[in-house]
Write a protein that binds this DNA or RNA. Structure first.
Lengths: 143, 143
DNA sequence: ACTAATAATGACATTTTTTCTCCTTTTTGT
DNA sequence: ACAAAAAGGAGAAAAAATGTCATTATTAGT
């Protein structure tokens, strides 16, 4: 699947979904943004598109995009639900406690060993995991 | 530091904190409970102690206990903030997506290697991390 | 045991995030 | 252009969390 906005839009339309200005803008925002955004962030960013949709609409749209597997939810330890574009591969986040910047990383061995150990020892079938690192980014470290 | 309620209570009192029925009960609930509890859960459980404190009080009490390092916050991917007793050592959670049971585990190598790699490659000083596994527990797997 | 100091609580309002319902508007295939 | 269906808007409200200020309870000191 392509990452480009118009390709995604076309695919949605082909499957019978309607493309509205809000849908297109929310998609564009989440495709361009590197860090996960809260619903409130998205509402704020939509003003740059001259759009001021009702919050109900935005939540509904985010649910829709999750359902279509175009985005996914992420939760950091402040408890706020954020949204980021769905990408194949498995990423974790580096969250700077100082400037709040969020970077993504993909771990090499990716906890496969740990998951297998858990499944064997605890008889717990791991479906997914979340792993986030909190610390201080290089810029903030210099100060 | 002891884990027993009365010892903790004595230590709090020695440091000039007052021991109220609510404080004692919240502590007792969180010491006895194995899984993290949301503020609402705690309010519900306090009724068993014939206590119906105002929610403000409960949130404030939880903040107090965090400040004293007796409990800590945990966030799972539903975004709700939960509280669990603070324990030395570093634990992760196994959260059953079916029955919602929560188990704790302590990983052997505990991501030390990954953290060092991140610090070297990304120049990001890792202060802490959160790692939770979502899946199906042994009981639910049998069904 | 009494009292003063102060920590803790309660009441109430408010903020923030999220969800629900019902009705209207927009998009799209024909 | 029109009809069907999807999407959006408005308002209320739930749920979680926070802030303020007056009142109550705990504790140390007498």
């Amino acid at each position: 699947m392509s990452n480009k906005l118009e390709d995604i839009v076309d695919q949605l339309r082909e499957k019978g979904n309607k493309i509205t200005s809000i849908r297109r803008a929310v998609l564009e925002i989440l495709i361009k943004e590197t860090k996960p955004l809260a619903a409130g962030d998205i509402i704020a960013l939509l003003k740059r598109y001259q759009l001021e949709p009702h919050k109900t609409t935005v939540y509904r749209e985010l649910d829709f995009l999750i359902d279509k597997q175009l985005i996914r939810e992420v939760v950091f330890d402040d408890g706020q639900i954020r949204y980021e574009k769905f990408e194949p591969g498995h990423f974790h986040h580096l969250i700077c406690l100082s400037c709040k910047k969020v970077d993504k990383i993909e771990l090499s061995d990716d906890l496969d060993k740990e998951e297998k150990t858990i499944e064997r020892k605890m008889r717990f079938k791991v479906k997914r995991h979340s792993l986030e690192f909190y610390g201080v980014c290089s810029k903030c470290n210099k100060r």
